[in-house]
Simulated assay, not measured.
Amino acid sequence: MLTEAKLNEWTSWVWTNLHRGVSPSMLKAEMAKQLVPDSEIVSVFDRALEPTAPVDYEALANCAITKKFTETAGLKKIASRKAQVFSWENFLTPDECEKTIDVINQHLRPSEVTDTRGDKYVRTSSTCDLGDIANPHVFMLDRKIAEGIGIHWSYSEPTQGQKYEVGQEFKSHTDYFEPRTKEFEPNTAERGQRTWTFMIYLNSTPEGGATRFPRLEKLFRPKQGMAVIWNNLNADGSVNPFTLHHGMKPRQGEKYIITKWFRERGWGPMFEDPGFSKL
Results as ranks from 00 to 15, higher is better:
Met1His: 14
Leu2His: 13
Glu4Thr: 13
Trp10Ala: 03
Thr16Pro: 02
Ser23Trp: 14
Lys28His: 01
Met31Ile: 00
Met31Val: 03
Glu40Val: 12
Glu40Gly: 11
Glu40Arg: 14
Ile41Tyr: 07
Val42Ile: 13
Ser43Val: 03
Ser43Phe: 02
Val44Gln: 03
Val44Tyr: 00
Arg47Gln: 10
Glu50Met: 15
Thr52Trp: 11
Thr52Pro: 07
Thr52Cys: 14
Pro54Cys: 07
Val55Arg: 03
Tyr57His: 08
Ala61Gly: 08
Ala61Asp: 11
Cys63Glu: 11
Ala64Trp: 14
Thr70Gly: 10
Glu71Trp: 12
Lys76Asn: 14
Ile78Asp: 04
Arg81Tyr: 13
Lys82Gly: 05
Lys82Met: 08
Trp88Thr: 04
Asn90Arg: 13
Phe91Thr: 07
Leu92Glu: 00
Cys97Leu: 05
Glu98Lys: 13
Lys99Ser: 03
Thr100Val: 06
Ile104Arg: 00
His107Asn: 05
Leu108His: 00
Arg109Thr: 11
Arg117Ser: 09
Arg117Glu: 10
Gly118Met: 09
Tyr121Phe: 13
Ser125Asn: 13
Ala134Asn: 12
Ala134Ser: 14
Val138Gln: 00
Leu141Ser: 04
Leu141Ile: 12
Asp142Gly: 06
Lys144Trp: 07
Lys144Phe: 01
Gly150Cys: 15
Ser154His: 11
Ser154Thr: 13
Thr159Glu: 05
Thr159His: 02
Gln162Phe: 09
Gly167His: 13
Phe170Arg: 04
Phe170Val: 00
Asp175Ser: 04
Pro179Ala: 04
Arg180Thr: 09
Glu183Asn: 08
Glu183Lys: 03
Glu185Gln: 15
Gly192Lys: 06
Gly192Val: 04
Met199Ala: 06
Ile200Asn: 03
Ile200Ala: 00
Asn203Ile: 00
Ser204Met: 09
Pro206Tyr: 03
Gly208Met: 07
Gly209Asp: 01
Ala210Gln: 03
Thr211Trp: 03
Arg212Ile: 15
Pro214Asp: 09
Pro214Glu: 12
Glu217Val: 10
Lys218Gln: 12
Arg221Tyr: 15
Arg221Met: 12
Arg221Ser: 15
Pro222His: 06
Pro222Ala: 10
Pro222Tyr: 05
Ala227Ser: 11
Ile229Glu: 01
Trp230Met: 09
Asn232Ile: 04
Asn232Tyr: 05
Leu233Gly: 05
Leu233Ala: 03
Gly237His: 10
Pro241Leu: 09
Leu244Tyr: 05
His245Leu: 00
Met248Gly: 01
Pro250Leu: 08
Glu254Gln: 09
Lys255Trp: 01
Lys255Ile: 02
Tyr256Cys: 02
Tyr256Leu: 02
Ile257Leu: 06
Ile257Gly: 02
Ile258Thr: 08
Phe262Thr: 02
Phe262Lys: 08
Pro269Met: 08
Pro269Ala: 10
Glu272Asp: 15
Gly275Asn: 10
Ser277Trp: 11
